[in-house]
């Protein structure tokens, strides 16, 4: 939408349909000149600058809330298969413990399983802690590339 380039065409079109205006071309021309004389006294640059200043907090609020939503969604989606993974791990550990008890003293078998459980715990913890960090980093990188 731009300012008119051929404003007279609007008036001419009107004159074509309106007998009164067609007969009073001078008056129509006067309207044309009057409308043409309208000057907009607005400092557009300052207006846009003020608007940006006003909207900046709103934009950062939106960006923040979107980031929080993304992180929560990603974390929740990652948590969905966790019960299945834990059940499967428990089954594997139990099988490993049974075999270890046949070959090793009970204390050593328990120690091995406990160590492995601790290792798995660390692994899961690290993975789930990395999810929000990775999502946040990706979002920040995307915002930066947009600039």
């Amino acid at each position: 939408m731009t300012e008119a380039t051929d404003r007279h065409s609007v008036l001419e079109a009107h004159a074509g349909e309106c007998a009164e205006c067609r007969n009073d071309a001078a008056a129509l021309d006067r309207i044309g000149r009057l409308l043409q004389s309208s000057v907009v006294r607005v400092d557009v640059a300052a207006l846009s600058q003020h608007t940006m200043t006003l909207l900046r907090p709103e934009l950062s609020r939106r960006a923040r809330s979107l980031l929080v939503r993304r992180v929560l969604t990603a974390t929740l989606l990652a948590l969905l298969p966790l019960p299945l993974v834990l059940i499967y791990d428990a089954y594997l550990l139990d099988a490993f413990y049974q075999i270890a008890r046949l070959l090793l003293p009970a204390a050593i078998a328990t120690y091995l399983v406990a160590t492995y459980v601790a290792f798995l715990g660390l692994l899961f913890g690290g993975t789930y802690a990395a999810i929000p960090l990775l999502v946040a980093r990706r979002a920040t990188a995307a915002a930066a590339s947009g600039e």
Binding site: M1, T2, E3, V40, V42, V44, A45, L47, S48, T51, M52, L55, R56, L59, S60, R61, R62, A63, R64, L66, A143, G146, E147
Partner: peptide, 22 residues
Amino acid sequence: LATGNEPALCELLRRYERPLSN
């Protein structure tokens, strides 16, 4: 803009500041 992208708003403002204010 819906994601809070500031440069997008800057560009839209630049494109429409004059016709809209007029």
